[in-house]
Nucleic acid binder design. Structure first.
Lengths: 214, 214
DNA sequence: GTCTATATAGCGATAGAC
DNA sequence: GTCTATCGCTATATAGAC
């Protein structure tokens, strides 16, 4: 085939397909040839729409971050300074987005990169906190430390994925049912730890906020 | 050279050299050939001591975790229930270990894997918290959530490394000095966020601890 | 039983034809 | 804008030297 009348590929379609592939088979399944095959195309064709493979993975991560809801920060103001519920809502939304694509986790850690939605999120959080009465310098710290906790939770909870690990469990737990129970139990523990940590963190921040405003 | 009288390689020496290589040139510099060259040996020779390259990286990560100090947890008891300072000390030690080898960060995120020291750490934390009066179920959550925050901080603070990014900054900030200032500033922000978050988290946990014991 | 040598398969990426 | 062809790279398996 030579040049088709209408493009077969687009950057969006590539990113979309790559995310589906990551979800289904993990990050290592994404190679130029494999992904191209999924798109009904030859490997090098991708490079007309994407600079490098690393850049593509970055775009896939950003697509996941696009699902994070920061809308509540936009409603904050001196009259409605409910920053606590905004942070809580955002943290849960972030966790849910990563949980829905847990194979992406290792890539999440590879630096901030150039990820528009990461910036959008950081900006929304910072703006909301300032609007709710946090000093700018404090708001920077709070935004960062909340991000630390949320991403750390995502990593700790979902990294290394259980599904693909089933074979490993098998050696020690010959009954697959038990392996599933183990994974579920681990998930419940992670959920509890996240909720407990989020509450403790927000409680601690309320103390700090009160200390700043007396 | 054929078989030498005395082994040139050992697993420890390989891991040690790999860590030095990671520190100096980053994770991507570690390939079988490159690492073997560093050891004065041919690439495939490594496979006599190491299963796969991934397993080696896991061992390198574990070597970093070996530097994390958990000794204070061993001193906790009903008579000395100072779990707060033990957690604080441990968190700072963890951060310091990762900071000393920040190029390792992306690997830190690739699942728990089989890392003996990670288990040692989790066990020490859990044991100390229980000795200090935390119920077992709560201690599990607290250990996990603290790990979330600490690893998330390490990732957020050190991922993507600044040194190798200098070229990227260059485009927007033609003066290298400014790039350095930027990196330093970013480091100070991360440090502030970590300290603020650690304090808030521990404050929140003290509230919880008090709630459990009345 | 530890190393070297060789070979396979797959990777990202580029060049040039159409 | 997609193709074919190709380069140089990688991890890893296997065979054989000593």
């Amino acid at each position: 085939m030579a040049r088709p009348r209408r493009p077969l590929l687009s950057r969006d379609r590539i990113v979309e397909t790559a995310l589906a592939l990551v979800d289904a088979e993990g990050l290592t399944a994404v190679s130029s040839r494999r992904l191209a095959a999924e798109l009904g195309v030859q490997g090098p064709s991708l490079y007309n729409h994407v600079g490098t493979m690393d850049e593509l993975i970055d775009a896939v991560v950003d697509a996941v971050l696009a699902e994070v809801d920061t809308s509540m920060f936009g409603t904050l103001s001196p009259e409605n300074p409910s920053w606590r519920s905004a942070l809580e809502n955002w943290a849960q939304s972030y966790r849910a987005a990563v949980a829905a694509h847990h194979e992406i986790v290792p890539a999440l850690a590879s630096g901030p990169g150039r990820r528009p939605h990461a910036l959008r999120i950081a900006d929304a959080v910072f703006g909301g906190l300032v609007a709710a009465g946090w000093p700018r310098r404090e708001a920077t710290s709070v935004g960062a430390l909340m991000r630390y906790f949320v991403t750390g939770s995502a990593l700790g909870s979902f990294a290394g994925g259980f599904p693909s690990d089933a074979a490993v469990y098998d050696r020690d737990y010959p009954h697959l049912n038990e392996a599933h129970l183990l994974a579920e139990r681990q998930q419940r523990i992670a959920r509890d730890a996240f909720d407990t940590g989020l509450k403790a963190l927000l409680d601690g921040l309320e103390l700090r906020y009160a200390g700043l405003h007396d």
